[in-house]
Simulated scan of single mutants.
Amino acid sequence: MFVRILTIVLIEWLLFATPAHAVQSLQFGTAVPMTKKGTSTFYVPVGFDGVAGNELMVDTGSDYVTINQTTLDALKARGKVDYVKQVGGVMADGSDVNVSIYRIANLSIGCCCIVHDVEAAVFEGTDRQILGLSALKKVAPFALSLDPAHLMLSDCKAQSADLAKN
Results as ranks from 00 to 15, higher is better:
K138R: 13
I101K: 11
F42P: 06
N106A: 15
D127P: 06
K165C: 10
T60K: 02
Q27W: 06
D82E: 13
Y83V: 10
S62M: 11
E12K: 09
M152S: 06
A161M: 06
A17R: 12
V87P: 02
H150W: 06
Q24M: 09
K138Y: 02
A92M: 02
Q27H: 06
T30I: 06
T35I: 11
G88R: 12
M1C: 06
D127Y: 14
P141I: 02
T41F: 00
K76T: 06
D73N: 11
T41K: 05
V84D: 14
Q129S: 00
Y102T: 07
T35E: 14
Y83C: 05
V23E: 08
V65M: 11
V118T: 01
C111W: 09
F28R: 02
D59C: 09
K76D: 10
L153C: 07
A143F: 13
V65G: 08
D96L: 11
H116V: 02
T71C: 04
V23K: 12
G50L: 04
P33R: 10
K76A: 04
D117S: 15
A20F: 09
I11A: 11
D127E: 15
I67Q: 03
G47D: 09
S100Y: 02
A22V: 15
L146C: 02
K138Q: 15
T126I: 15
K85P: 01
S134N: 08
A17D: 14
I114S: 11
L151I: 01
Q159F: 01
S62R: 13
D93E: 06
P148F: 08
A164N: 07
R4Y: 14
Q27C: 08
G125S: 04
G132E: 14
P19M: 12
G29S: 15
M34C: 04
G50H: 03
V65Q: 07
C156Y: 00
D82Q: 13
K36N: 10
L6Y: 11
I8Y: 12
F123H: 12
S62D: 13
M91A: 14
A149K: 08
G89H: 09
L15E: 14
C113P: 01
I101C: 09
C156A: 00
F142Y: 14
T7M: 14
L14S: 07
D127S: 15
K36R: 14
D127W: 11
A121Q: 07
W13T: 13
G79L: 06
T39M: 08
P45A: 10
S154W: 02
W13G: 09
V97S: 12
Q27M: 12
E55V: 00
A17T: 10
L107D: 05
V65P: 05
V3K: 08
N54Y: 03
L163H: 15
D117P: 01
D147R: 07
M152F: 09
V44W: 00
A161D: 07
A105W: 03
Y102W: 14
F16H: 14
D162R: 02
P148W: 08
E55K: 07
L15K: 05
L15R: 04
F48Y: 03
V122E: 11
G38S: 00
T66Q: 11
N106M: 05
